[in-house]
Amino acid sequence: MTYRNHLIISAVLMLMLVTGYWAYDGSIVPASNSQSPIIRQDADYFLVDALVKEYDLTGALHYQLKSDSITHYPHNDNTLLQLPVLTNFSDNGQVTTSRSENGKLLPGGKDIELWDNVVIIQSSPSKKQHADVHSSENPLKQELRMDTDFITISPDLEVASTDRPVLITNDTGETRAIGMTAYYKQGRVQLKSRVRGVYEPE
């Protein structure tokens, strides 16, 4: 075999190897009969001026959720809320009202996220009145206000938590902190870090 013929055969073999590599590398995709399931990401229901109420085992109103609109997405079971107002009614008569510009009911419907201008106000019935806390005839006295930009609330447990900056104000002053957990029933607030307060004696 001459040297020239040897070079030609080598070139042909090299060409075959390169062609086979590109075919194996993905240029040729084998046909498949299986198809990926199509997941719809549009809403399956939409409510305007919605009001949801939850009662305890004794039949007393435990909490209620109002929202200008409620939009549910089945692909992730999230429910978006516009201008939500969540009101918790504790056994001791304390009423905690949480409002924001936006919110989301998480999958399972147990926890709610609120964000954008979140305001939480804890109030108690007037000491001179002992009527039903749900009655409009029973005035409530504001005791504590909490402002933040994001919070997660568990209405059933009456617990709210955030890792964002928070401002807490009451009759005697104000407190700022990074992160907070509020226990509605116990009337207790646990601050996480960088706590600063201003106290104004009466």
Rank of each mutant, 00 (worst) to 15 (best):
L140R: 06
L140W: 01
K141L: 10
K141G: 05
K141V: 08
K141A: 10
Q142P: 09
Q142T: 14
Q142F: 00
Q142E: 07
E143D: 08
L144R: 12
L144G: 00
L144F: 11
R145L: 07
R145E: 07
M146R: 00
M146D: 01
M146A: 00
M146W: 00
D147R: 14
D147I: 01
D147Y: 11
T148C: 13
T148Q: 05
D149H: 09
D149F: 07
D149I: 12
F150L: 11
I151C: 01
I151R: 03
I151D: 01
T152W: 04
T152L: 07
I153H: 00
I153S: 01
I153W: 01
I153Q: 01
S154F: 06
S154C: 12
P155D: 08
P155Y: 03
D156F: 09
D156M: 08
D156L: 09
L157I: 03
L157Y: 02
E158W: 01
V159N: 07
A160N: 03
S161Y: 12
S161P: 05
S161Q: 13
D163W: 06
R164P: 05
R164N: 11
R164H: 11
P165N: 06
P165K: 04
P165C: 08
V166W: 11
V166K: 15
L167N: 12
L167R: 12
I168V: 15
I168T: 14
I168Q: 09
I168D: 10
N170K: 14
D171P: 05
D171T: 11
T172E: 03
G173Y: 14
E174R: 09
E174G: 08
T175H: 04
R176S: 12
R176L: 14
R176Y: 14
R176E: 13
R176P: 08
A177P: 06
A177Y: 08
I178C: 09
I178S: 15
M180T: 14
T181G: 09
T181W: 08
A182M: 13
A182G: 07
Y183M: 04
K185T: 00
Q186K: 08
Q186G: 03
Q186V: 00
Q186S: 04
Q186N: 12
R188F: 06
R188M: 08
V189S: 04
V189W: 13
V189R: 01
Q190H: 06
L191W: 05
L191Q: 00
K192P: 01
K192F: 04
K192C: 01
K192V: 05
K192D: 09
K192G: 02
S193F: 04
S193A: 07
S193Y: 02
S193T: 01
R194N: 06
R194D: 03
R194F: 02
